[in-house]
Design a protein around this nucleic acid. Structure first.
Lengths: 334, 334
DNA sequence: ATATTTTCTGTAAACGATTGCAAGATTCAA
DNA sequence: TTGAATCTTGCAATCGTTTACAGAAAATAT
């Protein structure tokens, strides 16, 4: 109903000018005790709090900064961890995060990028949907502080935080081979996502090292979501000569594949083994406890946020590539 | 580096006044074809997009609206579903959502409410941390369109979307009793959260109906997080006369309790049964497939967003309470 | 031909804050 | 008492938009 009180309202209530009120709020020196008290009382009476929209418009160097966080899929627990990391840093460094989820949808990503830009954010953390993502590249070039997480950007210098996906995938598949598997399938996500291809390369590296022929039938790419994991796992298991082990390219795919295996009442790992990229904190409660590649999602988010905060302060610092360690957690699914 | 182009830049480039550019952008009639083309070309050349901060400051009505979504815990898959529901509606009705997660921390909730308010959002969807949440009540009273999800607010009229928690809990516990359990424990979340208490009441209703004495030892409230589920389950299992079944108050608690049970290598449901409030789409892949109360999280979010959009358009509409159906999904954990 | 209506465009005042500048009020020294 | 130095405040411009108002140009009517 009634609009929130403005500086002007406070000024009238206190009988001073808006400038004075502003100065009280911004802790400038040279304010008489009396007026300060007067103004503070008025602020309390009206329950005034400054309009950040106006502040952002006016100030170049605002106090509490706005950082955008654009993630690929909020349903994926990995990104939830990233987000928590970002948020904790933001909170403790007096930043606010504007989160958007584009659900692996390129159109939505574009829209949100436009919106973030025009919300005049002070910096952006993003997992670009592909290496050449034009919109993101343009944003970087325009001088906006940007940090990429999980996925890299080609042809442009930018801070990035991720794990060595190829190596992690290699180690995972090597482990499967060491456990005696020869027919190993890879279920990946969207082909344009850099991690999908990096993990595929790691998978191929491992097969090559052990001289296992690559069977294209055993490589299936989907859309990075639960449903595609379910569907592709079913396709693979229906093969005349089905794989004995599944290497699944992300959390959601893993859960989808598990669902297929369970509805078919297959025994893991005896009838089919599974190893997932991305761990979940409840992996131990899955049936059976899942062997998985653990990416430090929270850490990734935290580091990315720290880099961003730094870059906002010091825009000319040369870009950094931070490669964190991924770790294979051995449990009982293979 | 270079600041983003403004209306003024476009105007200069096109050789017209800023007003004209603005009119082209806002599709006003009375624009000559020639100038329109001129302006559009300039816009494209400069890759201009309007500054929404300035727009929000200037306009009261008629641009892409900003709706705030304040959730209690982004790690909880239930809220992720809610969020997706909200986001889908927002997207298709030309709204933008500003998401914040207060991680069950009252201080953080307060901060984010302040921030949302001063970001001049057009409406808010929130899961208040307790019934009398002063900040939220004040926001409602100030006339800001607000919709509560999952949790109610006392003493104030406001749109709300939730399930009948007491009834759902009652049915769940009744089911446990029918399966032969007599010593049933309840592990709840934070005591000040309305749902914690509603579910506790449902639990007590069921015991009372079957004349099972209430043992206060068997009721444990924690902080709604994974870790507390883990810890409280351990306490319960260490009791001289431990419960034969656990009724867990939310997703994260359920996963925590499962972890405890699994690290102790106890057989579910023979040695201890478990029934969780809140289902997860991968519940079937848990060990064993989890029996759980399914709340329609996506639907809750969707309905809440619809109500909010409606209320923004028509602020005087009387408040609505939408009670959706929760359903017990019977699997193998009890 | 002029009068009237309809198109088109620019000027300038908002929106709610911050801030350089200058003037008025105090204090203090001489 | 006077002059300088130090506080304290208000005026007004500014950030990037939208929009009421008015004036100019074109189209139409008389």
């Amino acid at each position: 109903m009634s609009n929130p009180p403005t500086l002007k309202d406070v000024a009238e209530q206190a009988g001073v000018s808006v400038a004075t009120v502003s100065r009280v709020l911004n802790q400038t020196k040279y304010i008489k005790q009396e007026t300060r008290i007067l103004v503070e009382r008025a602020i309390k009476q009206l329950n005034y709090s400054p309009n950040r929209v106006a502040q952002r418009l006016r100030k170049k160097e605002g106090h509490r900064r706005l950082i955008g966080l654009l993630v690929a899929d909020i349903q994926n627990p990995f990104y939830v961890d990233v987000m928590r990391g970002v948020e904790d840093v933001a909170f403790s460094t007096d930043h606010v995060v504007f989160l958007a989820n584009f659900a692996q949808d390129i159109e939505r990503e574009k829209l949100y990028l436009r919106i973030m830009k025009s919300e005049s954010i002070d910096g952006l953390i993003v997992a670009p949907s592909h290496e050449k993502d034009r919109e993101v590249v343009q944003l970087v070039k325009s001088g906006l502080p940007v940090v990429c997480v999980d996925r890299v950007l080609a042809d442009v210098e930018v801070d990035v935080v991720l794990v060595d996906n190829r190596k992690a995938a290699f180690e995972a598949v090597e482990y499967l081979i060491q456990r005696g598997h020869r027919r190993i399938a890879y279920i990946g996500g969207l082909p344009q996502i850099p991690t999908t291809m990096q993990r595929k390369k790691g998978y191929e590296d491992a097969l090559r090292k052990y001289a296992i022929p690559l069977d294209p039938e055993l490589i299936r790419l989907g859309d990075s979501k639960h449903e595609s994991g379910k569907r592709l796992a079913a396709q693979l298991l229906d093969l005349p000569s089905p794989p004995t082990a599944l290497f699944t390219g992300n959390n959601l795919i893993t859960l989808g594949a598990l669902e297929t295996i369970h509805t078919r009442k297959l025994k893991i790992p005896d009838e089919v083994a599974i190893l997932g990229f991305d761990d979940m904190y409840w992996s131990i409660s899955l049936n059976p406890p899942l062997t998985a590649v653990h990416q430090p999602g929270y850490e990734i988010g935290k580091r990315a946020a720290e880099l961003l905060v730094q870059r906002i302060k010091e825009p000319e610092r040369p870009p950094v590539k931070l490669v964190l360690k991924a770790e294979l957690i051995k449990r009982d699914s293979c």
